[in-house]
Amino acid sequence: MRERWREMMMTRLTWALSGAFVIMGLGLMASVLVGSWPILMAPHSLGRLLSPLWDPLQGQWGILPFIVGSSVVTLLALCLAVPFALASAISVSRMLPPVVRPHATRVLAALTAIPSVVFGWWGLQMVVPVVRNLGGGSGFSLLAAAIVLAVMLWPTLSFLFAEALQSVSPSYVDASLALGATPDQTLVRILIPCAMPQLINAFLVAVARGLGETMAVQMVIGGQVAMPQGLLSPGATLTTQLLTDAALYPPGTRGHAALDVMALALVAAMAILVRISARWRVGT
């Protein structure tokens, strides 16, 4: 009797906590949506939002430079990080001696826990001067932000890629090798195709982390609100601009609504990523 009562309480507690989580998430989305409503419902709002002019004190709400900044920095960071991360993951999961593998995995897990401000600080000291020397200008740029983000994503991606590769049944690998395939052929034709859904999920997690990263990027991107003219040009992302201008506008003002639109754009991007990720998970 007592056991049943305890079980029932546990079930109710679990439901209550899950419900609170859902309500909190929905509440967050609702507050962002309600906050952005005055701008979304204004005449010609889409055209004004997608203009390249951000000057909220003059009524210019164009967030296109920040959408471009977020997209370019994230894509470039992933292009730089994925090959290195995949190589690290293959080494950790397949090439290192079995005795060393758990230790290497632990090192990767530890690297994922480094706070982003440390990467930003490192970027300020190392990456910005290098970009300045190579490309001229101030060095604060989309390229510097992408390099810092790539280095930041590398351990996370490596860790997730390694987990994905390790999830493939060893019997597949053994069978491939027994049939005369070389280790390279086994990797390319068996291991990677079998782990593909998890690899893609890992990639999407990295995209989400890249899009959402704020502090490290803010420290090296330059915060320029004009449309970036190239990779060596300073710029801003949706998250960095939210950070920069968050202090300026109290809730209820037009400027706050503009920042809510940026937050909404980020939430929408994340929702799309989760949707794509769920599709791949179904495929596993």
């Binding site: 002019l53 951000w54 101030s138 604060f140 803010q218 330059g222 915060g223 320029q224 004009a226 920069t244």
Partner: peptide, 8 residues
């Protein structure tokens, strides 16, 4: 200028 670098 909107092309200015912004530092916090």
């Amino acid at each position: 200028t909107p092309k200015a670098i912004v530092m916090l």
